[in-house]
Nucleic acid binder design. Structure first.
Lengths: 137, 137
DNA sequence: AATTAATACTACCTTGAAGTAGTAATTAAG
DNA sequence: CTTAATTACTACTTCAAGGTAGTATTAATT
């Protein structure tokens, strides 16, 4: 049980960009090297982040990326949704279709509290709350 | 973020077997049909569950499977560990090596409480606490 | 002893995520 | 205008999880 590589990368990219916002513009090569993410894979993720409107790209020489949305308005949940990695509300943890109060799997009740806590955490963790001193990148 | 198919199947299998413990012996064909798990894939999982000592197999005609361990002594955590799907204590949620109090990623603190709650839930949910009336299988 | 119904084993195929390669498009600098 | 440095696009390859096929082994029934 873990986040996908893609989600992990995206969160790290955006958090790092937020940390460097003075620079205003950061390019794929720098991100790839600093975050140790394969260059070609990173650019693919960047394009997705552009398409979904979190960042904008500046093409050509001296180009790069900068935020489009306020970093206080981008949550981990938003990022996970971009890569279809979020915890969907009615998704059954045992994979038996959909669970709810009246139609539930054997783990449903036990899972419920943890799920809500996780969802809340993902929703309330916006990028601006993550930039901090001394964290690993 | 979800459990692997294999883990989901294994939990469902063991929970269903516990539910039917009066029968004492249940075979792969029945499990496959009742739980709608591909037969060949199910038998592969069963063999793993035998190897790890949760159940024993009886080969030959009239064969099948029954529990070896007490169902109160098999937790979801144990099952997840069998298929390498558990939440490892120091595994970084962002995939940057290992996290702990002194060396942490940007999400570490937010993740900590949820992680502990999840681990606790997985550890405390033994199979006997899951058998219940009217649950989906 | 033969048949039948069951699990175990080995090897393969499929699918989706992860990662790579090459080229086109864009734009600042010289 | 040319060059260099950048992102975007298209297509491919790799890897691990999920799933399938065939055969060997086991043991009760007849």
């Amino acid at each position: 049980m873990k986040l996908s590589n893609t989600s992990q990368y995206a969160i790290r990219i955006l958090t790092y960009m937020a940390d460097k916002q003075d620079t205003q513009r950061i390019n794929a090569k720098d991100l790839s090297q600093t975050l140790d993410i394969p260059y070609k894979f990173l650019t693919k993720i960047m394009t997705d982040l552009v398409k979904v409107g979190f960042i904008v790209s500046i093409r050509g020489r001296e180009g790069g990326y900068r935020f489009e949305k306020e970093i206080s308005d981008i949550s981990i949940e938003d990022i996970l949704k971009t890569f279809n990695d979020e915890i969907k509300d009615e998704a059954c943890i045992l994979g038996i279709g959909y669970c709810n109060n009246t139609c539930k799997c054997a783990l449903h009740d036990q899972w419920l509290d943890s799920k809500i806590a996780l969802q809340k955490m993902f929703k309330e963790s916006s990028i601006d709350t993550l930039v901090g001193e001394g964290n690993k990148v």
